[in-house]
Nucleic acid binder design. Structure first.
Length: 117
RNA sequence: CGAGUUGACGAGACAAUCGCUGCCUCAUCGUGGUACUUUCGAGUAUACGGGUGAGGGGGAGGAAAGUCCGGGCUCCAAAGAGCAGGGUGCCAGAUAACGUCUGGGCGGCGUAAGCCGACGACAAGUGCAGCAGAGAGAAGACCGCCGAUGGCUGCUUUCUAUUUCGGUAGAGCGUAGCACAGGUAAGGCUGAAAGGGUGCGGUAAGAGCGCACCGGGCGACUAGUAAUAGUUUGCAGCAGGGUAAACUCCACCCGGAGCAAGACCAAAUAGGAAUUCGUACGGCGUGGCUCGCGUUGAAUUCGGGUAGGUUGCUUGAGCUAUGGAGCGAUCCAUAGCCUAGACGAAUGAUUGUCACUUUUCUUCGGAAAAGAUACAGAACCCGGCUUAUAUGUUGACUUAACAC
RNA sequence: ACGUCCGUAGCUCAGUUGGUUAGAGCGCUACCUUGACAUGGUAGAGGUCGGUGAUUCAAAUUCACUCGGACGUA
């Protein structure tokens, strides 16, 4: 059954969970977005967000980007393998439109799926 | 109708689909507690916490921002005393409090509505003012003016002495000159600033030296709670400029830290080793000092080890309505309402329709196309201030021109 | 979230009881020295003192607001 739910179980919550991803990541990227990926053993996919204040200055823009990423992850999660991933963002992302962010993310999802087949 | 001033409110709407978050109700699952039954396996009931599902209703701001003030709350001792330090600064009021607000005063800007003002004291004391300039604070004579008085020189005349009878010398009066002593702050020059202003008189020239008016000072009176005001009145020619966002003085206010405060649960700070000081006139306890109060051996080094969860957390100086008091800020009474509580951090995404602005077309009903949708995201909570902001609705007021 | 501090030349810093003109080192430019380079020497350019306003005769310095940056607190 395919669900589009997005609960606390599908997020990275503690610093140690984040550290696991940062230790030995596989990198995927586009012009404005970098994603670090590690496979996990919990039979689950988990998303973490690292949107630095240094890269995106205004809180409104940071929130907007995070919502877009979560929304895209929520809609595409059932296609993904069991991985932990952290999404990072480069400077200038706050000037992108919502649909541009979504296009970039969808490209990266496809790359990850291919890599893990 | 144009231009403007000022206050209040708003900050796109609706629908569908897919989500997030916490609240309520119901169903269900499992577990611990309590009561009852028991064949000691368990079963039933109950309330609460937890998981899952369904339904319902709620979910960012006017500035949530800057962190510039003030308060609540929490801990430091129950928050105390003095000093230091800091803040505020016309008067009165409002308030939990304020650097805020309201009303009034004074000054400035504007035709006006209205707006702006860190607006106590420099006559308590100390300090500062480069360069320029004569002089910078009980000032000063550089140019200029005068030179009455005194001095020097000349002339007229009078007197005295002397005489070679032409004069000569001295003294006095008058007068002309010099600018030597000196007088003078009206004018010039310098500067941001030069010790009341204008006029007349006056004088050697001038000067509050005298007078008139204006301005200012001190006191009285009147009005006002007061700041302050006055076509009131008396006094004295004027009394010393600027700077306190210079030290300072005066009045009033302020103990320190902050929800990463603090509390609870589990773990942990353990147990150790070495050195030094000390055994109470000491050390520590928030940050400045002294007192006071509380508590008690302290410091350094080596080695070892943690930083998870719950709570604080949203019912509050709360909001709405009505009535009353007050010019107003605001306050009082009654009734009703509950309106975000997240924590690697929710409050969203997509699509459609309408609404907004501009342009074009128009049968003046509207239609089409394009564009824009600001500033910006709660993190303990309030009251303000300040800064950012596309734009909409509306109240009151001022004013030019025109029309009546 | 709360708290503290800092902005001066291209870089690193001086300079603040308000006073004439904002200075040092490195770097930069030109010339001299060398066959050439380095070194050395001489000269020169380069500053809205983060911004706006206020106080004052006068502000890098004092005050208010504002912009940017750094650090600390579990």
């Amino acid at each position: 059954m395919v669900t589009n739910q997005f609960t606390r179980e599908s997020r990275l919550l503690t610093p140690s969970q984040f550290q696991n991803v940062f230790k030995k990541p596989i990198r995927f990227g586009s012009s404005h977005i970098t994603i670090l990926v590690t496979s996990n053993t919990d039979n689950n996919k988990r998303l973490g967000l690292a949107i630095a204040k240094k890269r995106v200055k205004l809180a409104v823009q940071r929130n907007r980007i995070k919502r877009q990423i979560r929304e895209s992850f929520r809609l595409n999660q059932h296609q993904l393998p069991n991985i932990d991933l952290v999404v990072m963002v480069k400077s200038g992302t706050d000037t992108l439109e919502n649909h541009q962010i979504r296009q970039q993310l969808e490209k990266i999802w496809r790359k990850i799926i291919q890599r893990h087949k």
